[in-house]
Computed example of a mutant assay.
Amino acid sequence: MSSLATLLVLADGRLPSGGHAHSGGLEAQVAAGRVRSLGDVEGFLRGRLHTAGLVAAAFAAAAVAGRVADLDAGLDARTPSPALRRASRAQGRALLRAGRAMWSLPAFRDLHHPVALGVLAAAAGLRPLDAAVAAAHGVVTGPASAAVRLLGLDPYQVHALLARLAPSCDEIAASAVSFVHAPADDLPAAGAPLLDIGAELHATWEVRLFAS
């Protein structure tokens, strides 16, 4: 399998890693009335890409090069919301489980999702840039898919939006790769406090479509 084909396998939304169960914080923002239209979704995704996307891409890329335990601890420190920490680790465990069906992985069992993504990328023979692209891509495609369900948007228009965001995903990934060999403490720490607050509120709901 070529490197490009392997990357497509890793970035495929149909990979059984539980991503379909998470909205990336969008459900809480829709409920709060902050995201109501396709234009609002675009603003949400662009903001998410330049915060959570940059962090996820940098940690995924660095994890390809090793230092997994330090990176996992560093990402934990950058995730102030307990609900988001639980969601990230749940997705990380699911991703590792899926990865073990495809490649030989180290004996990690509980990692944050971006770090787990880097571990899988390394096992698959991918480059740090590949892991960064997959991470940035996932940060926007998950919420975009959720937006179709939450707002009843036209899926063709949502995918057109993802196509417009593709160059920004590439730029974020390229920026993230510059941190591959940096100490974990020096990796990006961009945050979105409103999403942290929303995640904690969302976790208390008795009825919801998404786990996060």
Rank of each mutant, 00 (worst) to 15 (best):
A32K: 08
G33L: 15
G33K: 15
R34C: 05
R34L: 15
V35A: 11
R36C: 10
L38D: 00
G39C: 08
G39D: 12
D40G: 15
D40F: 13
V41L: 15
V41T: 07
V41R: 08
G43S: 11
F44P: 04
F44R: 05
L45C: 01
L45D: 01
R46L: 15
R46F: 09
G47V: 11
R48D: 03
L49F: 07
H50S: 07
H50R: 15
A52L: 12
G53W: 11
G53L: 14
G53S: 15
A56F: 13
A58D: 07
A60Y: 06
A61W: 14
A62E: 02
A63K: 11
A63C: 12
V64D: 00
G66M: 12
G66Q: 11
R67C: 11
V68N: 05
A69S: 14
D70P: 09
D70F: 05
L71P: 01
D72C: 03
A73I: 04
A73E: 13
A73V: 06
G74Y: 07
G74L: 09
D76N: 05
D76P: 00
T79E: 01
P80D: 07
S81P: 09
S81R: 09
S81F: 09
P82V: 05
A83C: 13
A83F: 11
L84S: 14
R85H: 07
R85G: 14
R85W: 03
R86C: 11
Q91Y: 02
Q91C: 06
G92L: 09
G92W: 07
L95V: 06
L95R: 11
L96A: 02
R97K: 14
A98G: 07
G99N: 08
G99Q: 04
G99M: 10
R100T: 13
A101L: 14
M102G: 02
M102S: 05
S104D: 14
S104R: 15
L105P: 00
L105Q: 01
L105D: 01
A107G: 09
D110I: 01
L111A: 00
H113N: 07
H113S: 09
H113R: 13
H113F: 14
P114R: 00
A116K: 06
A116Y: 09
L117P: 04
L117F: 03
V119K: 00
V119S: 03
V119W: 04
L120P: 02
A121G: 00
A121L: 02
A123K: 07
A123I: 02
A124I: 10
A124F: 05
D130V: 06
D130F: 06
V133N: 00
A134S: 08
A136D: 05
A136E: 10
H137V: 04
H137L: 09
G138H: 06
G138E: 04
G138Q: 06
V139M: 08
T141C: 04
T141A: 11
G142N: 10
P143D: 02
P143R: 04
P143H: 03
A144R: 09
S145C: 01
S145N: 06
A146G: 08
A147G: 06
R149Y: 09
R149T: 13
L150Q: 02
L151S: 02
L151V: 01
G152E: 07
L153Y: 03
D154V: 12
D154E: 10
P155F: 13
P155E: 10
P155C: 14
Q157Y: 04
V158E: 00
V158K: 03
H159M: 12
H159T: 12
